[in-house]
Each structure stands twice: as C-alpha cells, then as structure tokens.
Amino acid sequence: MTITNPAQYTAVTTSDKIFQALQADIVEGRIAPGSKISEPELSKKYHISRSTLREALNRLERCHLIERKANVGCRVVECTVAGLLEIYQVREALEGMACRLAAQNMSDSEIADLQKVLSLHADTKQLKQGVAYYQEEGDLDFHYRVILGSHNQQLITILCSELYHLVRMYRFQFGMNSPRATRAFDEHHHILTAIADRDGELAELLMRRHIAASRKNIEKKLQKET
C-alpha cells in the first residue's frame, strides 16, 4: 500500500508554497493565535492573487489552524487549555488504534527504520539532560511514523494532515520542556517492542497509556501555573 507523507509534501504550485509558509508561521507563533488574517495584506506581502491566497487559507482551515467567523473573517485559532485536552483525548483513542494496526501492518524494514529514529532521539542533548523530548516533524517524529505504519489512510489523513500541525502549534504555545522526557522516551521503546512482537493489543494499550500520561502531566503543569 502506498502511503502519502503529508509532512514531507513538496511545494509545487504557488498556493502550495503560500500554504506551507503560512502554516509554519502559525505553528511556530510568528502569526499570533487569535490574530486576524488580512487577505489584502497577505496578497500584497506574497505578491499573489486573492484567489490563490484563498485556496491556501481553505487548506489551513481544514488543518484547523484558522477559523472563519461571520462578520469577522479569518482568524488564527486560539490555543486554549480545553482545546489542548480535547486533542489529547482524540489522540489517545485514534493513535491507540493506529498503534494496534501498526503492529499488524508495519513491514520489518519500517520497524527497523523506527528503531533508527529512536536511536537518533537518544543522542539529542535535551533528552540526555532529561529536560525535553521534542521531535522534529514528519519522519523524525515517532508518533508520525507509527501512524503511517498503520497503513490506514483514514487515520493517516486525520492524524497526519488534519490535526498534526495543530498539535505542533499547541506544543510551541504551551512549551516543550517536560519532566517526563526520559520516561516518555522509554515508553516509546516499549511501544516499539510491542509492535515488533506483533502484539497489537499491548501496543494499543501502551500507546493509550503513554498519551494519557502526557495529558495528565500537562494538566498538573497548568494547575501549578494558575
């Protein structure tokens, strides 16, 4: 089965390029959450037509990075605690399912590649210091690779296209440092072992526990800050 890799998508058209540029600016906070999207300003900035810009904005809306409101127009979504926790609830269920399917469907070479990804993670300075475990997007993201390994196009579309960059946006906004860094990395190893053993039931259980633990950690962190 051929898997499309959205995070590695190569810009082809002008709309593609504008979409990717705006997506990066929103995710990384250069365009602030809640800020209004001005079509005339963006058209002038990028020297593009309004129709080309609107095509890019439509794609950003499908990725849940912007929203349209009557009499207001387009705005970048707000990052709220409630929204963050809802995303984790969705991820727990759907990534658990993806992990079960990955144990059934990943090839031996895909599993070997995933092991190489974890080996790269182990060498990062922040993880060695136990302060953060933040992965680059796409093929260097453990969760992303597991989802692709499910070989289920519906899950891939939902998790790797529609929600993927929104999750990254929340990571940037709420901070990436975590006291769970080392433990999260160890949990990834246990998940990979279950996948390699073709134990779908255990793989799903471990992934659900892993994401639930991250959600609880975030809840505790936010409670301390309030």
Rank of each mutant, 00 (worst) to 15 (best):
I37V: 15
F185E: 02
Y144M: 00
N152R: 00
H64N: 14
I66K: 02
N152G: 04
I211A: 08
G175N: 05
G73W: 04
D108T: 09
V77G: 09
S38V: 01
T193L: 07
E136Q: 13
I195Q: 07
M176K: 15
T10S: 09
I87Q: 15
E187I: 02
A56K: 07
V12H: 12
Q104P: 01
A132Q: 14
A181I: 02
L148R: 07
L101S: 03
L192E: 05
L222W: 13
H188F: 04
H188W: 01
Y170H: 12
H121Y: 06
R91H: 13
K221F: 12
L22E: 02
E110H: 04
R59T: 10
I158R: 12
K220T: 10
Y164E: 04
N217G: 15
C74R: 15
R68H: 15
E201F: 03
T80S: 15
A203M: 07
V117Y: 06
T14A: 11
G34Y: 03
M207W: 07
Q135M: 14
L202D: 04
S119V: 09
Q126E: 15
T14E: 09
R91V: 02
Q89E: 15
S119D: 15
Y9P: 04
Q153S: 12
R180Y: 08
I218A: 05
K116S: 11
K224L: 12
L53I: 07
R68Q: 12
Q20V: 05
I26V: 05
Y134M: 13
A56G: 00
S35C: 11
K221R: 15
E95D: 06
I66V: 15
T4P: 00
A112Y: 00
E162M: 09
T157Y: 10
Q115P: 02
D16G: 05
A212G: 08
